[in-house]
Amino acid sequence: MRRSKAVVTGAVVAAVAVALAGCGTSAPSEGDSGTDSLLIYTSRAEPISEYVVEQFEAKYPEYAGKVEVLTMGAAEIPERVRAEKENPQASLWWGGTQQALSLGADDGLLEAWSDPSFKDQIDPMYRDADDRWFAEYQLPQVIVYNNEVLDADSAPQDWDDLIDPEWRDKIIIRDVAASGGMRSIWDAMILRESPDGSDPQPGYDYLTALDANTTTYAADPADLYLQLSRQSGVVSLWNLQDTLIQIEQNNMPFDFLIPSSGTPVLVDGLGIVADGPNTDGGKLFAEFLYDVELRSTLAEDYFQIPVTEIKAQPSWLADLDIVPLDVDWAIAAEHEAEWVDHWLNNIKNK
């Protein structure tokens, strides 16, 4: 197993990062071969990050044993990078929503990179206009259910079904504050009611009703999968990729539905940390992520929907019928912190 460390809470992340920055902790040191070690912050599922690092080190043996990955929630990565801004520790921010990456870029956390080889393969709508972040794949959000209790007919079919009293204490949700995907679902629910974001109250009313049906907020994805499999709750909201990994690779008793009225389709991407200790290594790893062979494998075996061309669409992707919700992600980025803060202080567990 690759060396991967899970970071659980934003508070711990920030506190540790500030302590490291304050103490002047050194960046990853240079190894015996003369190649600097490479520290990556990621929100990717560990099976994916472990596989990719193995393939990267095989292709670039000078990095064998020198790539360290810290796994955390997508919303926790910017907290850590921001806390370390005066003394960056990581070289690559790998995994995050368009909203988080855009805000991080505007805060000076990401370096402009004008000439990656994959740039022209990515639709301009899926990359930063100033080349500070690039989408890696698209991530639809789905309704997940325990298929030992429910089937495709009895499970909730759409967003409004989730707030029906029928589902009281039957829904489990991943802790929203730490999860970029969950934050994005919350953004979409608010913008569904107020497309310009000017009146979030109807969206807050929806989230209040959803909270009333939620039995618990899982601390992390592993906790979510465990509780859903044990039927502590029988319905959840989660991203398609990780859901398929749990179904196909881990034999979890799950199935999913794409909400009938449409679903938020996120852009999940990456960026080079500004003034990171091994920018060249970070760029080399990023270039590798867009390798056509790797992208094809990640689509076939790890259910990624790439934003660049691959050899052939896997059957699972060709069979999907996804209707994206019309979400203005720029408005979401502008208001997300405010909306999530309101939910934490006025709605969650109330």
Rank of each mutant, 00 (worst) to 15 (best):
R2T: 11
V7M: 15
T9G: 05
A14L: 11
V16D: 03
V18R: 15
A27H: 00
S29Y: 05
E30I: 10
T35V: 15
L39N: 07
T42C: 09
K59C: 04
P61D: 02
K66P: 04
A74Q: 01
A75V: 02
P88F: 11
S91Q: 01
L92E: 03
G96L: 12
L110W: 09
F118L: 09
A129N: 05
D131A: 14
R132A: 00
W133T: 13
V142A: 06
L150V: 00
W159M: 03
D161M: 02
A177C: 04
A177R: 14
G181M: 02
M182V: 07
M182N: 12
W186C: 12
S198K: 10
P200H: 08
P202I: 03
T215R: 12
D220R: 04
Q227T: 04
S229E: 14
Q231G: 09
S232Y: 11
Q241C: 02
T243H: 03
S261Y: 10
P277T: 01
N278Q: 11
G281M: 11
F285K: 01
D291T: 00
R295T: 08
T297G: 00
A299P: 01
E300D: 11
Y302F: 14
Q304T: 14
V307D: 09
S315V: 15
W316Q: 09
D328T: 00
V340M: 08
L344G: 04
I347L: 08
